[in-house]
Design a protein around this nucleic acid. Sequence first.
DNA 1: TTTAAAATACGAAATTAATCGTAGAAAAAT
DNA 2: ATTTTTCTACGATTAATTTCGTATTTTAAA
Lengths: 130, 130
Amino acid sequence: MSLKSKYNPTESELEILQLLWKNGPSTVRFINEKQNEVKAVGYTTTLKIMQIMAEKGTLDVNKESRQHIYTPALDEDETKGKLLDGFLKKTFSGSAMKMVMQALGNHKPSKEELDEIKNLIKEIENKSKK
Amino acid sequence: MSLKSKYNPTESELEILQLLWKNGPSTVRFINEKQNEVKAVGYTTTLKIMQIMAEKGTLDVNKESRQHIYTPALDEDETKGKLLDGFLKKTFSGSAMKMVMQALGNHKPSKEELDEIKNLIKEIENKSKK
DNA sequence: TTTAAAATACGAAATTAATCGTAGAAAAAT
DNA sequence: ATTTTTCTACGATTAATTTCGTATTTTAAA
């Protein structure tokens, strides 16, 4: 695992990645329609960005049929992890704890969510204890 | 508290805000020197950005003396909270839980940090129970 | 077969952010 | 008093991203 891997999906690249992770390999048309459920985005805009992402290697393209099918080339969890790290550095001086605090403080988690966290904590504790 | 307040400090604006929150009201010179402990940034670059921030209302300026003194106009916790929300939406579909999971999973918190979280959880539980 | 619809390719304009150079004013040093 | 240093003001440039128009190709419909 490289120490210096630079993932910088831009804002709209991330938007597209999210849709692909959620819906699986898709055409430009499909992604563009999804985007337009939220806000107006021209078809060629979506196309262009997806092409750029393919150039960068962020997406894989299958060009067998005319409607090219795009697949995210990046692992979802790994990518989100790196984005989180970056955000953490910029905003919380790298302290995950500070951020978790802020998140929990802000967000008033439900009982179920709290339980979920507690379970996770137990898991982590057990793992390190073993 | 408005529902639609738009905070978008850019990358370098956030960098400056962080320094101001940490060090208190400061001159451009001071902030620029702090930045240069980490990377080369021209003085006028820092100046320009801080002036823009002042225009936007992100910073307050005291111009009484020649060396203007800049103060963050935004509350640190509130701003970080909003940034977190934005990041959450973009990256974790708004789910604080997913993100906390990712953070805890990634980051392997120390025993002390875990305790800290557990305390916070207790606090939250008590608060909502009463 | 001709026309219409739906794709991609490509380039260029529009936006936004970041960087810096230069000028001029004010203060400090000599 | 003169020079040098230290500021701010301001504009211009660069760079990255986003957006979209137009041309061309391919497929589908009439």
